[in-house]
């Protein structure tokens, strides 16, 4: 029962992250919303699996997947942001500042 509640919270965060993927105006803001919300939502689902089964084989595997997913998502986000800035994709109309443009070779 507790596991169902945790999984429901996770899916709610996943939904908000995907909604941000649709609503936000440029690549950088989409990545902000999608990376944070979807990573935390999926970690929450895996935590629900751990609560459902307890510390047996499958629960420990779910616990290991959490830091793995965490580092994969953050490093992927760095790589995508830096790549799209180097590829010359502009920040959206609402942006106020871009310090990176001056130092980038």
């Amino acid at each position: 029962m507790v596991s169902t509640i945790i999984i429901t919270i996770g899916i709610a965060f996943n939904f908000l992250g995907c909604l941000g993927l649709i609503r936000f105006p440029d690549v950088y803001n989409r990545l902000q919303s999608a990376t944070k919300c979807v990573t935390l939502g999926t970690c929450s689902i895996l935590l629900g699996v751990l609560v459902h089964y307890g510390f047996v084989e499958v629960g420990v595997k779910a616990l290991i997947a959490i830091p793995l997913l965490f580092f994969a998502a953050t490093v992927g986000a760095h790589a995508l942001v830096r790549g799209s800035h180097i590829a010359g994709i502009k920040l959206g109309d609402k942006s106020v500042k871009d310090d990176y443009k001056e130092v980038e070779k």
């Binding site: 908000l16 992250g17 936000f24 803001n29 919303s33």
Partner: peptide, 13 residues
Amino acid sequence: RVIHPAMPIKPGI
């Protein structure tokens, strides 16, 4: 920020 109808964002690097 996602739910708010007016999207209060002011992005920059």
